[in-house]
């Protein structure tokens, strides 16, 4: 696992680069990145959102899945191999699942709005935007909870601190 993980991360990076390239070479509809507002200067409107998603929605969806996977794999890489217990992998899998759930809800609720023009509401925002505003934040908080609550188990144990103190002592001794 220790040797394979960086290769997997590299593969994810290559997949993101390939998806970005595919998006770049796909013919863009008019005003793919917005259009001037009809009546109000210095304000942009969205243009044809459905046309945008039709052309590259699948690539964009996959790109963000890869991005979320990239973030989780980097967290795994940062934890020393000896501390990557089954429980740690379990928590990381849950974090990834929460992130993917938030992303797919946001994406498909947006797509449903484009098709029907209707939306539900949650705490002041349309449902898709509420998934973005509250969901993305919450998904990140899961990662932070694992870091803080699992600090001694996964990040820096008391044994690690002793090893580091010993390293510092050896370094000072060798300088003297």
């Amino acid at each position: 696992m220790d040797r394979v993980l960086p290769y997997v991360i590299f593969a994810v990076v290559l997949a993101m680069a390939a998806l970005l390239l595919l998006i770049g070479i796909t013919e863009a509809p008019v005003n793919a990145a917005g259009v001037a507002h009809d009546t109000i200067p210095a304000m942009q409107a969205g243009g044809d959102g459905a046309a945008r998603l039709k052309a590259i929605g699948g690539y964009a969806f996959a790109f963000n899945c890869m991005l979320l996977l990239f973030a989780i794999l980097l967290c795994v890489l940062s934890v020393s191999p000896g501390k990557r217990t089954p429980a740690f992998f379990g928590w990381m899998t849950i974090t990834f699942a929460v992130n993917i759930l938030v992303w797919q809800q946001m994406y498909f609720q947006h797509q449903a709005f484009l098709e029907t023009g209707d939306t539900g509401w949650f705490l002041g925002f349309p449902t898709a935007t509420a998934w973005q505003v509250y969901g993305v934040w919450f998904a990140g908080v899961v990662m932070i909870a694992i870091y803080s609550a699992g600090f001694r188990r996964y990040i820096l144990s008391e044994e690690d601190e002793r090893r580091f103190e010993e390293l510092l002592r050896e370094s000072r001794d060798s300088q003297e």
Partner: peptide, 11 residues
């Protein structure tokens, strides 16, 4: 509508 959706006017 798009301005209030997750990808806004910028796409």
């Amino acid at each position: 509508g798009e301005s209030m959706m997750p990808f806004g006017a910028a796409g």
